[in-house]
Nucleic acid binder design. Structure first.
Lengths: 218, 218
DNA sequence: AAGTGGAAAATTGTATACAAAATAGTTGAC
DNA sequence: GTCAACTATTTTGTATACAATTTTCCACTT
């Protein structure tokens, strides 16, 4: 294993946690991981702090660093907040959005649709992310944009899970089109409501998915 | 100077930054501060990470850690987001709030008013914080509550500044009463709008305050 | 004279050694 | 036999030494 930097370590650890190698609540052993990555404990602690910033792990003084995979309840709550934040973006963007951005959203949407046709999940995911990123930017509120990106990233693995649900992709696409349409008309409340519903439904779908998995495990 | 722990160092640094000892954009010299606190660089770096978590400083790899006091524009943006988050709390709380919590809010409000009468700024500030904390809790969304507390804390010094504005305290009190009243009736949209306005006005007041200070400095 | 190259200084990142704290395990008393 | 206290072990927190990177400054070339 090649020599790592703390940046890479944080990234790799993120992958391991999201990949399910470390179970939620598990303590991340510093010496063990230091040995695994062939580095000392110091950069590992740095990496832990970075993961704590994105909320993936929790550090308790004199106790250790623990995997903080959110449970179903907290996840629903996070989707609820995400829905509100995106709705706010939409409300603000409806008044401020530029024609260029509207065109960009339409183009992104088109590429998104193409990805759906080609069953290209990664492509869909990428374009979908771009669609939302444009919306955040067009809110005109840089702080709001940052908070949205942060939460969006944190929900990333859970959004990804539900892409497998049949028919969800196409439904999501038509929702995107309705959003663009409302933004173009400058209908703030309508756009906000469309976004709220668009994100909220993801939380619900996820809930169903989780319930299904739980049932299957029993 | 006594021996410090990284927790205390983070706290003390926070005070120094908020107290204006370190100017925004300034680089925090590790060796210099390590010498000042009579500790090594290691716990200082830990403290930096903690401050980065609350957004007070920014760490740039191989460049250093910089004071990240937000400018007027970002501050307005933050108040805008805070207003939306609190409005969401209100909307959710309107349906879920318990009678005990309503009584608690009224009692807190009463103590708040007493503090105003006694010109007890610290007391007012404390009770006001409690008022909002109850609201966050009553949203029933633990994640939302956490995000609100985080942002509220970050805006703390700026809220505090505007308490000096004449008449603002009493106005704020009557807004609180209107909020409680709307919550009691279960009027979600009304409560949300009341909160949004209540917080947004703080952002505006702050804006005026900053403009005044800037003018006075010229 | 201005711009580029490189060497030296300053500063951040990492490794190792040591200290402090928490947990676990064991012995003793009741 | 159970609970409590003490010791031993494990684990986190800190100090110091060293490596790597960035920046600065000076010399040299065009």
């Amino acid at each position: 294993m090649e020599r790592k930097r703390s940046d890479n370590i944080a990234e790799e650890l993120e992958g391991l946690i999201l990949g399910g190698v470390f179970t939620p609540g598990e303590r991340l052993d510093e010496v063990q991981l230091a040995d695994r990555f062939a580095v000392s404990r110091t950069p590992l602690r740095e990496a832990f702090h970075r993961l704590a910033l994105s909320g993936l792990v929790e550090h308790i003084p004199h106790r250790g660093t623990f995997v903080r995979q959110p449970g179903p309840v907290e996840l629903i709550e996070m989707f609820e907040v995400m829905a509100e934040l995106e709705a706010t973006c939409a409300r603000l963007a409806a008044a401020r959005i530029t024609d260029e951005a509207l065109d960009d959203m339409r183009a992104t949407n088109a590429r998104c649709l193409a990805a759906v046709e080609a069953a290209d999940h990664d492509g869909y995911y990428h374009e979908n992310e771009r669609f939302h990123a444009i919306l955040y930017r067009q809110s005109g509120n840089g702080f709001l944009e940052g908070e949205c990106l942060r939460l969006h990233k944190r929900l990333m693995p859970f959004r990804r899970m539900q892409l497998r649900l049949r028919g969800r992709l196409r439904q999501s696409m038509s929702e995107h089109e309705a959003i663009v349409e409302a933004l173009q008309r400058g209908a703030a409340d309508e756009a906000a409501e469309a976004l709220r519903a668009h994100v909220a439904v993801q939380g619900e779908k996820f809930h169903h998915l989780m319930a299904g998995l739980k049932q299957a495990a029993e």
